[in-house]
Amino acid sequence: MATVERSSRGAAALGAITERTGALLLLPLEVLGMTARLLAGMAHLLVTAPIPGGNRYFRRRLLARDLWAMIFGPVPIILPLALILGTGLALGLAMLTGGILTLHGSAGIIALVAIQQVAPFLASGLLAARGALPLAVDLADMARRRQIESLDLLGVDVVMMITTPRCLALVVAACAHAALAMVVSAVSAALALTVMLDLPRSVWSAAFQWVVEPGMVGSVAAQMAVTSTMAVAVGVVDGLDPRHRDRLALSGVARSVMLKAAVTVVIINMAFTLWRIGDLPVLVLR
């Protein structure tokens, strides 16, 4: 009960702010507050739950299900998108520079496309669509049915039980997707530059040196972890919003979550890009 009461009170207070500022406006306070609560709840469930076997059994089941759905589900979307974006962006950038790039300049384009553009772009949409949206709809439907309360009465913290594995799965899936998108877009960019602009094959090795540079990969992974957690937090905020309890409109929840999560992810992507601006590959001109 405590979780529901806390969530309801928090969501009610935040809901009042939303009413004043517009329901679709991104609320950094709302997202940050919910992220802090989410992380605290997850830590409690993961670390301090004293049940040998019981919680782990259910978490494993949920985590396995969420991991499967979130890692493999979006792959058919990621592959063609990464391919198209990698090729398109590489060719576009190469054309704009008028074919005066050196080997290192071309490698820089590939790294730029793969790391700076494709992975965050894909993650933005996919995190919102695969992570926050279904979570919010599930929670909103459960809130409408009073399922959350009835399980809470039985001592089951269903919000955290559903949210924790979803968030963990999303972090893992986002990192895996980012890595996949980076590799696919790097390969497609390199292929496009090699075949269409007749660049030497040595550009490949130079590009992959950029792509697998540990600092960049690490910062992309960190970005994915933060954005995943925040996208889930957006889903929880909207799923538990008490304004939706009496006359729930799932389509309204879906629209709101999609927009808020996407805006949250884009803002975080931009912040990370600005933070890493010094690491951006420098285009060396011939």
């Binding site: 004293p50 049940i51 076997g53 019981g54 919680n55 059994y57 259910f58 399980l151 039985l154 001592g155 089951v156 913290d157 039980m161």
Partner: peptide, 9 residues
């Protein structure tokens, strides 16, 4: 089983 394991422990 869920409430027996998680709730009643």
């Amino acid at each position: 089983l869920l409430p027996l394991l998680q709730g009643l422990r």
